[in-house]
Write a protein that binds this DNA or RNA. Structure first.
Lengths: 223, 223
DNA sequence: TGTACATCAGTGAACGCGCGTTCACTGATGTAC
DNA sequence: TGTACATCAGTGAACGCGCGTTCACTGATGTAC
C-alpha cells in the first residue's frame, strides 16, 4: 500500500466513476437500450476498447448502474427519515424523498422500476439494494404502536405475510403486512404513473395527489 | 366498391395485420427499442423497403402497436364486466381480466405501462384508448350506491377531482374520486411490480395478494 | 367487352451510419532485489 | 538509490454485424371510356 500504488488505484477508481457518470448522462438521452460503450468512450476522449479495462462488458456496466440507482434511491429514502418523532411524519418524509429522487433522476428510475431490459438478467447483487426503500418504510412501523387491523386473509397470502413478518422482524398481523405491501406498491405505482405520463388529464401535476396518497396509505396500514 | 377493388384492399389490410402481428412477436423477444423493420420484413419474406408501403416509418408502426395494446387491454377489461349485478364482483372481474391480459402479453404491457421510449413522443391517438380500463372501473361506480367518504382534500387536488367528476359523470365527492385514482394506481402498480419482478422475495406468486388488493381497494373507494 | 392508361405492391441496390468486442502493440507506472 | 523486470492503461485497426430510409425500377391490379 505504498503511495505510488495508491496513485494508480486512485486514478482507476476515478475513471471508473467518470465512466459511470457519463453513462448515466447518456442514459438520460437514449435510455438503457440505447446506451453505447463507444459513445461513452467517445465523450470521455478515449478509444472504445479502453473501457474494457474497467468493465468486462456493456451488461456489467448496466448492472453497476442499476445497483447504484437502487442504492441512491434507497439512501434518499433512509436519509429523509429522522429516525424518531411522529411516525406519520417520518412516513411522509420517506414517501416524498423517494418521489423527489425519482423526479430528479427519471431515467435512472426507469432503469430500475420501468420495463425490464430484454435479454438482461438481473444478478443477485441487485436484491439487497432493491429493498432499501421498502425497508425504510418498515422501519417506521417497528417500535411503533400500530392500530390493529384484522380481516380475512387467504391461506397462501397469510403464509407469505407470516414469512415476511419473520424476515422483517415487525410485530403485525397478516392483514397489516399485506397492507404494507399495498402501500409500497402504491408508492411506486404513483411515482411511475406520474413519471411515465399516465396522470396527464387527471391529477397532473400530481403533487397534491401524491401527498394525499401518502397520508391515506399511512392510515391504511394503521399508522 | 367493386369486387376487384375490394380484393386489393383486403390484401392490404391482411398484410398490414400480418406485419403488426410479426412485430408483436418480435417485441416479445427484443423489446420496443430492439424492434427492427428489417427483421420484421425478413421474417415475412419481404424486402425491408416493402414495409414502407404499409407504414411510413418505424415510429408509426410502434404507435400503432401501442394503440392496439391499449385497446386490447381496455377491451379485456370491458368485456369482463357483466354490466350488471353485484358491483364488487364486477370490480373484481375487471381487475383480474386486466391482470390476466397483462400476464398473457407482458411485452405489450411493458410497451404501454413500462418506461417511456426515449425519443418517442406519444401522439394524441393514444389518449382515448389509454383510458379504457380506468373508464371500465368508473362505470362500475356509476348508478351504484357508494358509501360516502369524507376527508380533508387539499385545494389543488379538490379542483382536479371536481374537474374529473364532471368529465366522468359520476356522483361522488373529491375524496372518493381521489381514492378511485389511488385504486387505479394500485391496479397497475401491482401488475407492474408483479410482471417486472419486484415481488420476488415477498408476495411472489402474487395471485392471492392481487385478489386481496382488489377487494381492499373496492372497500377503500366505498364500494 | 376491349383497350389505353393510372395506380399500386414489391424489388434490389445503395447511402451512411453505429454497434460490441478482440487483439497485438506501445509506453508509462509500480515492484523486487 | 539504481536497475531489471512485471504489471497495467490506453491505442488503433479490424471483424462481422445490423439498422432506417431512399430511389429508380418492374410487373401486376384496377379504372375509365
Amino acid at each position: 500500500m505504498t503511495a505510488t500504488r495508491t496513485a494508480r488505484e486512485r486514478a482507476r477508481a476515478e475513471l471508473t466513476q467518470e465512466i459511470k457518470d457519463e453513462a448515466r448522462r447518456q442514459l438520460a438521452e437514449v435510455g438503457a437500450h440505447g446506451l453505447s460503450l463507444r459513445a461513452v468512450a467517445r465523450e470521455l476522449g478515449m478509444v472504445s476498447s479502453a473501457l474494457y479495462r474497467y468493465f468486462p462488458s456493456r451488461d456489467r456496466l448496466l448492472t453497476d448502474l442499476i445497483v447504484d440507482a437502487y442504492n441512491a434511491i434507497g439512501e434518499a429514502a433512509e436519509q429523509a427519515d429522522p429516525g424518531e418523532g411522529e411516525p406519520r411524519e417520518r412516513w411522509l418524509a420517506i414517501w416524498h424523498a423517494t418521489r423527489d429522487w425519482a423526479r430528479a433522476h427519471p431515467h435512472e428510475y426507469a432503469l430500475i422500476y420501468g420495463s425490464p431490459i430484454p435479454g438482461y438478467e438481473a444478478p443477485q447483487d441487485t436484491v439487497v439494494p432493491a429493498g432499501r426503500v421498502a425497508l425504510a418504510l418498515v422501519k417506521v412501523l417497528t417500535h411503533t404502536e400500530l392500530r390493529a387491523i384484522d380481516g380475512p386473509v387467504a391461506p397462501e397470502l397469510r403464509a407469505q405475510a407470516e414469512a415476511l413478518t419473520k424476515v422483517l422482524g415487525i410485530i403485525a398481523g397478516p392483514e397489516t403486512v399485506t397492507r404494507l405491501i399495498m402501500a409500497w406498491t402504491q408508492l411506486f405505482g404513483a411515482i411511475s404513473f406520474d413519471l411515465f405520463g399516465q396522470y396527464v388529464g387527471s391529477v397532473d401535476p400530481a403533487d397534491a395527489f401524491f401527498t394525499h396518497s401518502a397520508t391515506r396509505m399511512a392510515e391504511f396500514v394503521g399508522l
